[in-house]
Design a binder for these strands. Structure first.
Lengths: 335, 335
DNA sequence: ATTAGCAATCAAGTAGCGAGAGTGCTAGCA
DNA sequence: TGCTAGCACTCTCGCTACTTGATTGCTAAT
């Protein structure tokens, strides 16, 4: 169903007003803020139509109207001021130093910036370990029949672990084992390697089987642990918004930010840069919205930035900040 | 001021009742549950005395009484059933496998167990990096004018980092640098080394100054990051308790669990095994209590287990579980 | 010191009322 | 046909009043 220009204008004004006031908006209020040329009665009949179309809700018969989840969806898809968002994005372009020492540091400060500027809770969810490139592997003898396994990857991140070395692999075999590991793993991605574990282990000869098996287990373990790492900022910001005077809503909020599972469901795994989930129907909780953006640092996808807040979120601002910040960290050079 | 035997009996019964009901306890209720041989009027006059001493509070004139923070303090110091706690502790003795692969895994599952069994929120706060012993240091050449610095410590944990190697330190100097690092750091604790940074750097000769400086910065950085690592379980458990139908209390709760600073203030840095902080006066938030216990794994202090919940916490149970779990993981052998 | 008895106190629930806000409807107008 | 003015209707909210039930504090008697 098409929505007339005037209806769009009313819907946008109503949502904008509701976002800042969190109170049902009346027809006369709409008249004052965006349509002084028509009467409140006319606006009322338009509102009835919008209600029938499912965009507006009346808390009770003699109250103003409140946007539905569907309205917010329409709003973010059609009514946002793209130019304004672009302007906001640009203002972030040189926000971060173009060099950095530590991915973790960047991630943490990014979470803080997003939360501070938007005034919503912000979470950085790490991921994308799959695409990490294994550059080099070294076995370093540290005595006591054990060696340090060092895996060097393409983004400064690396994983290491002390492993036991079988008796029959001491001495010259040690160097051989090292060479075989390099042959087998270097140049491949974590995904390629972990998904073909069985093939790789089967291909190894005799005593090297156990070694390869161990290395692969370490990588799989690494994958699982990294996927769950999150950095959170501004959890208390939620209390700035009226809907969270209701404990039920706070409970929903907490359940999202504290169960990795729910959080991961909310992250867009498709190939969009930014995704917005609004309300229960879209996998966010009731009365809540979640905006996620892909994060790329030094050419590799490192995870997602997440903003979480009430459904009546200032999407304009959030999209500007999220777009700006992700673009800004994208420019950072590898150390 | 001494508290008579009967007053103690009344106080204990009142607190026990309040812990399970969260409702003001009346004199007649006390009579029924623990003092049928005297009249409610007698109990009332005792309650008036307890109120004057600061142990009880009346929400309003015609209501029963509620324990004050001071009452809980007296309760945990004097009225707990030590035998019962010991019994609970023993029941955990072989709860964990005596071998493990990964400290992190143990920590995580410990948090889960504590939260599941107590039905309160549980947090493992890592720390104690100070006492980690540096066993060995290796510089591994990985080409590109850079080296991998590997620091091996006494608990399987280790820190590594790629560092740049100055031109004039290639070749034979490289091996020399390695030896110097070992001489300088091996056998010392993180604390000894980081606290004497200036002395160590000053003592180094010429081109090694920068190298030592870098290594020390890595250690200091490591110290700071590790100190903040926390694992949390059962944050939503808090909603099982009536006092958290009030958003104000939920806000306090959230502010504790989400600001590392507050959390660290709550951890006992003195040498007690278990510490209990009750209410605002003892650095917990209003209406909340925090119980912390030192965690030792394989002979080294790795951090603290924290249980956080309402002031009317089931201390008996919590002390039992916390004592039991910490004793159980203490027995785990190093891999 | 303890008790029984009783009046006093207070929260919480229910009901009624008036003001205010906002709507829905209708008749009339362009 | 679309818009508007006017008005009755509806519902929330705050206020007051009243009732009920739980529990206390006090007092006089044991």
């Amino acid at each position: 169903m098409k929505i007339s220009e005037r209806k769009q204008k009313i819907l946008k004004s109503l949502i904008d007003n509701y976002i800042s006031s969190c109170e049902p908006i009346s027809s006369s209020h709409i008249k004052e803020t965006c349509l002084p040329e028509v009467s409140s009665a006319t606006i009322r009949s338009e509102m009835v139509a919008l209600e029938e179309m499912g965009y507006l809700v009346q808390p009770h018969k003699s109250a103003g109207r409140v946007p539905s989840s569907k309205a917010y969806r329409y709003y973010v898809d059609n009514l946002l001021d793209k130019d304004d968002i672009d302007r906001r994005i640009k203002s972030f372009s040189d926000y971060f130093d173009s060099n950095f020492c530590d991915v973790e540091q960047v991630i943490k400060s990014t979470a803080k910036v997003i939360s501070d500027v938007t005034n919503y809770t912000s979470i950085m969810v790490m991921g994308g370990v799959d695409n990490i490139l294994l550059k080099d592997i070294k076995l370093v003898d540290i005595g006591n029949d054990s060696a340090l396994l060092v895996i060097i990857t393409d983004n400064g991140l690396l994983k290491d672990k002390i492993i036991d070395i079988p008796q029959n692999m001491q001495g010259k075999f040690f160097a051989q084992a090292n060479d075989m590991l390099v042959d087998m793993f270097a140049g491949k991605t974590v995904k390629e390697v972990t998904e073909n574990k069985n093939i790789i282990v089967d291909a190894a000869i005799g005593e090297y089987k156990a070694l390869f098996d161990e290395v692969l287990n370490i990588l799989i373990n690494y994958k699982q642990n990294s996927a769950n790492k999150i950095y959170m900022e501004g959890t208390d910001k939620i209390f700035d918004y009226k809907e969270f005077e209701d404990v039920g809503n706070v409970k929903n909020f907490l359940s999202v930010i504290n169960t990795g599972e729910k959080l991961h469901n909310l992250i867009n795994e498709d190939d969009v840069e930014i995704s917005i989930k609004i309300g229960k129907d879209e996998n966010a909780e009731d009365n809540m919205a979640v905006v996620t953006a892909k994060c790329v640092i030094a050419g590799r996808e490192v995870g997602h930035a997440v903003v979480i807040g009430p459904e009546r979120m200032d999407y304009q601002k959030v999209l500007g900040v999220l777009g700006g910040v992700t673009k800004a960290i994208e420019k950072i050079k590898k150390e």
